[in-house]
Simulated scan of single mutants.
Amino acid sequence: MSRLLQTCLLSISLFTAGVAAAEKLTVTELQKGLDHPWAVAFLPDNQGMLITERSGQLRHWQPGKGLSKPVRGVPDVWAERQGGLLDVVLAPDFPQSRRVWLSYTEADERGRAGAVVGVGTLSEDNTQLNGFKPVLRQMPKLSGGANLGSRMAFDRDGMLYITFGDNFQAETAQDLSSLAGKVIRLNADGSIPADNPYIDKPDARGEIWALGVRNPQGIALNPWTQEMWENEHGPRGGDEVNILRKGKNYGWPLATWGEAYGGGKVVGSEGSKAPGTEQPAFWWKVSPALSGMAFYNSARFPQWKNSIFIGALKDKSLIHLTVNGDRVTEKSRLLRERGERIRDVRMGPDGYLYVLTDESDGKLLKVGLAE
């Protein structure tokens, strides 16, 4: 039987790290053969979705029509290690403007890489990205291909939040003259908001909203509080979920629940807590290697009310968390039996979860609860 569009009913019983759960899922393979897909964005009016492939292709997928040829007009990318074509988000006014934001990596003549975000206009037939223009670059370029971050999300006021990793240069996360290790906030047109916390501070980048992040791999707007939440990789252990607030310092590398890769204390760390830094809303002693995240805010599956879903690369699972205000609890780890790295998860307009697997034969999955 073909695995494409195959629906299987899964019964998962999980006992890991003190977490016990049983959730009966339906999982439909909508597409396979994707080249390390990284992000998905839903188009309005049942036009399907856009999918990025890390090697540099932007694809259009639509039910009944499948996967398109690569969309033309996408910028050239530096596709090495963790770099390449990364996130894709639609502008809040997309139905009128058809503007699409992309994040990706580029390298300089030394072979050092940095993240870039830019915007172009998608043609009505979804085949061409016109007039693409870079808006913000990480400078100077510091990365050899690690800790690039580069997730994006809009809030309800049309502000764009961008996560930039520390480029594996931990000290940059506390340096306000650098965009590395920061959360950025821009107006919808790419300009700097006048109320950003460091806009009038000498020698600080006005684009910065928050600092002290390491390798942020997920960002999503909490639909109940309208606050932006972020997740990130710790070093060896200490993966975190953070609630992003104006001007706050999320600690890296001064405060971390992880340890150095060779064991022991991270260089520059004062321990799990440090004065003037925020504690995570949730953290893991053993790193699942977090990726994309989505809040669940649909009536389709009431059992998932007040939930967050986060992909896991190393753990090869979809982590189900429950939320009560600022309190986060891990409930279960789903899809583990598939043995595939999970790169992104989004809640679709139909209330199902849409999941990308980070493989050379990457898949687009539609996940729901058995009804």
Rank of each mutant, 00 (worst) to 15 (best):
Q226N: 15
L335A: 05
Q138G: 08
D315V: 02
R156N: 12
Q226C: 06
G325S: 10
A39M: 04
I219Q: 02
I342Q: 02
L290A: 04
I12Q: 14
Y198N: 05
T163M: 04
Q96A: 15
N249W: 11
L90W: 02
G238N: 06
A21M: 12
E106R: 08
Y261A: 12
N196I: 07
E230R: 03
R110I: 03
C8W: 08
K331C: 05
G268H: 07
Q57W: 07
N126V: 05
L254P: 00
R72H: 11
G268S: 12
A153W: 01
R54C: 02
L122V: 12
D350A: 10
D35L: 13
N167S: 15
R3H: 11
K314H: 13
T357V: 09
I342L: 10
I243T: 11
G66C: 06
G84H: 01
K32C: 07
R336W: 03
G368Y: 05
T105N: 14
E270V: 04
L353Y: 00
E232Y: 05
S143W: 00
H36I: 09
F154M: 04
P70V: 07
G206W: 06
A115G: 14
R151S: 03
Q138C: 09
D108K: 08
V266N: 03
S143H: 01
P302N: 04
D175P: 03
V183W: 00
S2M: 02
A21P: 01
L353G: 00
V100F: 06
S97N: 15
S272G: 09
G56N: 09
V27M: 11
N297Q: 13
R245A: 13
I208L: 10
E340C: 01
D108T: 12
T26Y: 07
G262Q: 13
E124Q: 15
N231G: 10
P223C: 03
R3Y: 06
P280V: 03
V116P: 01
V266Q: 03
M49I: 06
K69R: 14
D87R: 00
Q6D: 11
L176Y: 04
R245K: 15
K305V: 01
D326S: 14
E23N: 10
N46G: 14
P44D: 11
T7Q: 11
P92Y: 07
D108F: 11
A194N: 14
L50E: 01
Q82D: 09
G264A: 08
W101A: 02
P193K: 04
N242T: 11
G120K: 09
Y261W: 14
K248S: 09
P280L: 01
G83C: 09
V71L: 10
L334K: 01
H320G: 06
S298H: 13
D45M: 08
S269M: 07
E371D: 14
K65N: 10
K32A: 12
E232K: 02
R98N: 15
T7R: 11
A22E: 15
M159K: 15
P63R: 09
S143V: 07
T329P: 00
E106D: 13
